[in-house]
Design a binder for these strands. Structure first.
Lengths: 217, 217
DNA sequence: CGTCAACCTGACCAATTGGTCAAAAGAATT
DNA sequence: AATTCTTTTGACCAATTGGTCAGGTTGACG
C-alpha cells in the first residue's frame, strides 16, 4: 500500500523529494495543532523555512497539501492491519494490530490528530475515502473477525464495535496526548509508560472479547 | 455541579435566557462542524437568526462564547460519574458510568466534538481546566478504582488506562459519528443500534477488567 | 406617563490570509 | 556556451472576518 522508496535520478529529483517531505511533515504538525482553517500557509512556510510562494509551487492550494497529509496517515493505518491476513489466530492477529496501532499513535501523533479533526468535522475533504477504501477495508476485516467468532475462538461480539473500540482506544493516546500528558504530571509518556499502556489496552480488549490465549492471565 | 434551572423573574430575564441558550446551542453546532477558527461569528449569528452584533452583546468575544460551550460539555461529563460515589460495586458503578457516557455521546454529539477539537489542538483555551478540575476529578476516581482492585473486585489494571478506554470508546461514537454513519450504510445509528453499541462496549470493558458480575455472560 | 437601563442592529474598519504573478536564479541538455 | 525547463521569491491583491460604535428600540419601575 505504501509506495516503496526509490533512488532519486538526479540532484533535482533528490532535492524535490526532500522539499516535499519537509513541507508535508511541517504541514502535518501545523494542521494538527491548529486545524485546517486555523493553520495558515504562512505558518507552514515559516515552519519549513521556505517562502510561502514556494509552497504554492509544490501544492497549488492549501487543500491539496492538506489532502496529502490526511492520505498519508490513512495509508499507514491500513498497512498496520496486515496481521489480519498473516496471522491465523485472533490473539496474534488482534494483539499485533493493537500493538502496531499504539506504535503509530506514538510515532505519528500529528497525522492521527489531523485525521481525527477531519472526521470530527464531517470529513469534508476525504469523504470519498470513507465511502470507498475504508468501507472495503472494514468489510474485509469484519469477515475475518466473524469467522473467528463462528469458530468459537472469540466470544460473540459485533466485529464493528470491536474495531471501533480498537481504533478509538489506540488513537486516543495520540489525539488526546495533551490531556494525557497533563494527567501524567505535565509530561508525555516515557518508554515504560507507552509499553504499559500498550499492554494494558491489549489485555483488556483481548480479555474482553474472550480470546483464548496461549499464555494465561 | 450543573446549575439548577430557576424560574425567570421577568419577561426580560426569560428572554435573555432563551437567547443565551439559543446562541450557545447554535455555537456548539457550528464550532463542532468547523472548529474554533473555521467557525465564524457570522455563521453562528445566521444559525441563530440573530444579527452578528447581537452575539457580541451577549458574548464580547468569540473566545468567550467558545469557552462557555466547552465548559458545558465538560460539566455534563463530570456529572455523569456520580455513580462512582453512589454505587458500591464496580459492575453497577462502571456499567452505569459507561452507559451514561454513551447516552451523552448520543444527546450531545456537538459538545463532545468541540471538546475533542480543543484537546487535540493542545487545549489552548481550557488548559487550566485540565490542570485543576479534571486532574482532581480523575485522581478521586482513580482511588475508587484502585480500592476495587485491592478488594479483588476487579483484575489488576492501571485505573488511568481504564478511564482512558472508557472515555475514548464512548466519545468515539460522538466524535467519529460521521465515519460510523458512513460504515453504517450512510445513516446514523437508530435506537436499536445505539442500544447494541452500548451493551457491546459495556460488556467488553467489564469483562476485560474481570468484573465479577451478578448476571453471568 | 416619564425616566432609565437593558437590549438590539446596520454600517463600518483594521487585520489577516489564500492565492497570483512576473522576474530572477539554478539545473539539465545539447 | 547557449538554450530550455524547473525552481525560487518578493510584492501584491481581493476576500474574509472579529470586533466596534452610534443611534434606535423596548421593557421595568416609580
Amino acid at each position: 500500500m505504501l509506495a516503496p522508496v526509490e533512488k532519486p535520478k538526479s540532484k533535482r529529483e533528490g532535492l524535490r523529494r526532500e522539499t516535499l517531505a519537509l513541507i508535508l511533515a511541517t504541514a502535518e504538525r501545523i494542521f494538527a495543532d491548529h486545524g485546517f482553517k486555523g493553520a495558515t500557509m504562512q505558518a507552514i512556510a515559516d515552519g519549513a523555512k521556505l517562502p510561502k510562494a514556494n509552497l504554492h509551487y509544490y501544492f497549488p492550494t492549501k487543500q491539496d497539501l492538506y489532502r496529502q497529509v490526511v492520505e498519508r496517515i490513512f495509508n499507514i493505518w491500513l498497512d498496520a492491519a496486515e496481521s489480519f491476513d498473516t496471522q491465523a489466530n485472533p490473539e496474534e492477529a488482534l494483539g499485533t494490530y493493537i500493538r502496531k496501532k499504539m506504535e503509530i499513535s506514538r510515532s505519528h501523533p500529528y497525522g492521527s490528530k489531523v485525521w481525527a479533526n477531519e472526521v470530527i468535522h464531517g470529513a469534508p475533504i476525504i469523504h470519498d475515502y470513507l465511502e470507498t477504501t475504508l468501507r472495503e477495508w472494514t468489510d474485509s476485516r469484519i469477515e475475518v473477525i466473524a469467522r473467528w467468532e463462528a469458530e468459537g475462538l472469540i466470544d460473540p461480539v459485533d466485529p464493528r464495535h470491536l474495531l471501533y473500540m480498537i481504533w478509538s482506544t489506540t488513537q486516543h493516546y495520540a489525539d488526546f496526548s495533551h490531556q494525557i500528558a497533563t494527567l501524567n504530571g505535565g509530561v508525555p509518556f516515557n518508554d515504560a509508560q507507552w509499553a504499559q499502556a500498550t499492554e494494558c489496552v491489549t489485555n483488556i480488549i483481548l480479555k474482553g472479547i474472550g480470546v483464548k490465549r496461549d499464555a494465561p492471565n
